[in-house]
């Protein structure tokens, strides 16, 4: 009896060991199959874009392409900055101060992804109920700071990583 039990245990061990090694093997094959769909090196190489901002007048904005997505660069007027900063935090679905959305000392430059945080459409400028942007797809309204005010979008328009290379050039990414 004890001899038989021992035999069974040994077989159990072999089964468990085989299944484990098999599962690791299958996993080692499946992961490359899944990961190949992530952005490849050529896509990652496009990760930064430099933009010349010397020609942008106050109150105007330009749109550039970064990683296949539009980025809005807006040079805001003092009135627009004041308007953005006068907003009561309680009125914001995704509370964030305007100061947190710009670089200190470069308050006039709003640099943000021109992508609606709802389902990824490009909002239209100088439209909507809050003097900012309006997304035509499902009706989200953004203010002069690109913060969501009304509509189905859950968050403010995203601020990408960017820096001022010099006073006339911004590097995004």
């Amino acid at each position: 009896m004890s001899k038989e039990e021992k035999k069974v245990n040994r077989r159990d061990f072999l089964f468990t060991a085989s299944y484990t090694v098999g599962a690791v093997g299958v996993g080692a094959v499946i992961w490359p199959m899944i990961d190949q769909m992530n952005p490849d090196k050529a896509q990652q190489a496009l990760a930064t874009t430099e933009v010349d901002i010397s020609n942008i007048e106050p109150g105007k904005s330009i749109t550039v392409l970064w990683r296949g997505k539009p980025v809005f660069l807006k040079r805001r007027t003092p009135e627009e900055i004041a308007e953005a900063r006068a907003v009561n935090m309680d009125d914001l679905p995704d509370p964030q101060k305007d100061e947190e959305r710009v670089k200190e000392g470069k308050d006039e430059w709003l640099v943000m992804l021109g992508v609606c945080t709802h389902l990824g459409c490009v909002p239209l400028k100088d439209k909507g109920d809050f003097n900012g942007w309006f997304c035509p797809c499902h009706g989200s309204h953004y203010d002069v700071s690109g913060r969501i005010r009304k509509g189905p979008a859950p968050t403010n328009m995203e601020i990408p990583k960017f820096e001022f290379v010099d006073s006339n050039t911004i590097k995004i990414g």
């Binding site: 899944i34 769909m37 952005p39 896509q43 296949g68």
Partner: peptide
């Protein structure tokens, strides 16, 4: 979403797959 796209937006890799 990035995995589905194979890029940082809908782009050539997305079309290909």
């Amino acid at each position: 979403t990035t995995w589905l796209w194979g890029a940082y937006s809908v782009d050539n890799p997305t079309l290909n797959r």
